[in-house]
Amino acid sequence: MFHTLVFVLEEAGKSIRRNGLMSFAALSTVTVALMVFGGSLFGLYRLHQFVASQPGRFRISVFLHVDQSRAATLELARRMRGLPGVESVSVVTKEQALADLRRKDERRQTNITAALGNVNPLPDRIDIRVSPPERSTAVADSLRDSKRYPQIEAVRDERALLEQLLATSRLVRNIGGSIAALLFLATGVVIQNTLRLTIFARRREIAIMRLVGATRALIRGPLVAEGVFYGVIGALLAGIALASVLTQSSRYLGRYQTPLAQGIPPGPSVPIMMGSLLAVGLILGAVTSWMAIRRFLR
């Protein structure tokens, strides 16, 4: 078993060295492809994290009629908790709203509350957070049905901004996903073609191995090992390049933290990225070489 493993690895190494230029071309193509693949996947993941962190940012504010009783407000809040997609509901009473306004007055040095005298013209308000954010518009629309909710005066949601964000994220997801899928396929094709040439270059060895009683698995072994080599070493190089690019750029961007970027969870760590990329490279190499063997080795 040990001798067989040594033999398989030695044969794969011989074949990689023998076709040096071609192996180099294959390895660099796989590296670049996996870099772009990993990069787009990383970008997609960050975008997903960003979008997932947005329900806290986008909320629906429901303003009740001013003459509603407190009991009616609480009853409505209770009903809203049961709506599908609603993650949390908080009641802001007209008194709290006025207090908020006073604090704003102080901060901005305005006099709105003073002008009101002793009258509180503000309504009770219910703030709703929806998850996932895609549902927010539908929830807001259902609340605008005045027959079902006669207590509600107005519903405000940040629909335009939210839709823009969601559209952008869909676009990036689709484009990035397609690019990633294409790159995955292209990488597979590159490995397959390399292995086809390897099988051709190894035809003498393969014929002799058959003749002297090699098992099928042993004939395939060096070819699969070569495919896995391209996948894994390509992933390793791509991971190193990607990690250095990302750490550099995040150090640079860190100085310009926008308010929008605050509160997004940190991205995946370098070891996790490296591990996933290696796993992808391993699977890619093994699967494509297996397919190449099935196609080109009778």
């Binding site: 011989k14 003498r204 002799i208 009683g213």
Partner: peptide, 18 residues
């Protein structure tokens, strides 16, 4: 096999069977 010497060519048949 042209890129292996006499010894390696003969040994190849043994290595193939483990």
């Amino acid at each position: 096999l042209p890129d292996r010497n006499v010894y390696e060519n003969v040994a190849f048949a043994l290595r193939v069977i483990g």
